[in-house]
């Protein structure tokens, strides 16, 4: 959209004001009618603005339109780098990096992350973890979980895996056996297939441009 947020905000307020003045002509502020018209006008203006912004937002968060990656991003190397101009971190996608030892076709990749999303929902992950910062506060944020150094530093050896994704998939299936502090994640009966799908989803999610959230994240450089 070619307009900045300030223009949008000012426009919403000014239009509400102008229409408010027009529709309340002739009534004193002490009459309920005055506030009724103001309320109707403002609510409608705000709803219209929300709808316009919704169309614009939906277009820009469509998978593959820049802010939200395509499913095949799971075949790429993802990092989180500081952008001097924006003054915040942005995900960077570069070079090939197979997931579970293979390059997934567009169809396969989409099916895989779809399975991941469905598993994340049906296991109610969001009621302990936060995803993009939303959810429960009983367990770590998963927004950039794919980039977390702990998988390579600790978990890989703990579960006896050869790669990060393998370590993640193994750990997710039996987290109660590999506690990282007093609070353990329960065994949610996640199958091998589901675990791989979750890993793929986390990798895909880490490539979403989240306006710099979380800040200062110390991403795994490996």
């Amino acid at each position: 959209m070619e307009f900045g947020w300030l223009e949008i905000t000012v426009a919403a307020i000014v239009i509400s004001l102008i229409l408010g003045v027009i529709f309340t002509r002739g009534s004193s502020w002490i009459e309920p009618r005055f506030w009724k018209n103001i309320a109707i006008v403002t609510s409608l203006v705000m709803v219209v603005f929300l709808l316009i912004l919704t169309f614009d937002t939906l277009a820009s968060i469509k998978m593959g339109n820049g802010r939200v990656p395509e499913a095949t991003v799971i075949n790429k190397k993802i990092s989180y780098v500081y952008d001097e101009q924006k003054r915040w971190y942005v995900p960077k996608v570069s070079g090939e990096e197979p997931l579970f030892g293979k390059i997934w076709s567009e169809e396969e990749a989409l099916a895989l992350i779809n399975k991941g999303k469905m598993t994340i929902q049906s296991k109610a992950c969001m009621d302990c973890h936060t995803l993009l910062g939303n959810g429960g506060y009983y367990a770590p944020d998963l927004t950039k979980a794919w980039l977390d150094p702990k998988w390579n530093l600790l978990i890989k050896d703990m579960v006896g895996a050869n790669s990060k994704e393998e370590a993640m998939a193994k750990w997710i299936q039996h987290p109660d056996q590999y506690p990282t502090f007093q609070r353990k994640m329960p065994d949610l009966g996640i199958t091998d297939e589901e675990a791989k799908a979750i890993v793929a989803y986390l990798k895909w999610m880490s490539a979403i441009d989240t306006n710099g959230f979380p800040d200062n994240f110390k991403a795994d450089e490996q």
Partner: peptide
């Protein structure tokens, strides 16, 4: 409604939605 409808924007800071929501 005047402040709340677009106040919705404070939930759109970090979920992948465009910068103007900030």
């Amino acid at each position: 409604f005047g402040t709340g409808i677009l106040g919705l924007g404070h939930h759109y800071f970090w979920i992948g939605t465009p910068e103007y929501w900030l």
